[in-house]
Design a protein around this nucleic acid. Sequence first.
DNA 1: ACAATGATAGTT
DNA 2: ACTATCATTGTA
Length: 220
Amino acid sequence: MTEKPSNGNATVPISDQSAMASSLITPKWCDRPSTEVAPDLIGCQLIRQLPNGPLIRSLIVETEAYAPGDPACHAYSGKSKRNAAMFGAPGHSYVYLIYGMYHCLNVVTESMGTGSAVLIRALALETIPPQLTPKQVEKPHRIAAGPGKLCRALAIERQLDGVLYHPDNDIWLEHRLNPLSADELIQTTRIGITKAAERPWRWYLDRSQAVSKKKRLEQG
DNA sequence: ACAATGATAGTT
DNA sequence: ACTATCATTGTA
């Protein structure tokens, strides 16, 4: 059913992409501060096996870090039913409902008991999901341009909260096929928060049309 | 500028 | 029980 990636060498030349083995991102790789994992996830792939649908590959083009001691982090006031997955093992998901109508997808970082995660804010999709309305597909490169939109596009709801990123769970992450150049990885402030809004913990891929908003630190 | 829409956390 | 808030998005 799902195509199985093997743990291969990630530094194979671009010309060998079609033949190379993909590499699965593991909990161990995610067992670091979210401020390190967030920029490292840019350019990596998120793959989703849609229920009764196709396999959708996508490029992660925008992320944000949420850390312990960070007032904007859902884990800031301790563990609850909603945020429990954030305190679980790294390399698992944290999915929550926001504004009553959208879901947001995170990658849990750091070891058990530490509440931190990386919010996936935008994806460049390789194929168009079949369940979307014609309206939603008007601008194909914008289908997953935003944390709520990408969850809608990949049918991600709270049922996927706390699951391990792994092909067996129909959602997983793979390392970059080729390195990013430093000048196209933009670091800026996080979006849509009021607490700790000055922390520069958002990253995006400058060349991507799927980034939700392209705002620099020094610009207005 | 603001409505849609519901779970959650904090306050009476 | 009540209320404010919310890591959003689409429309006016």
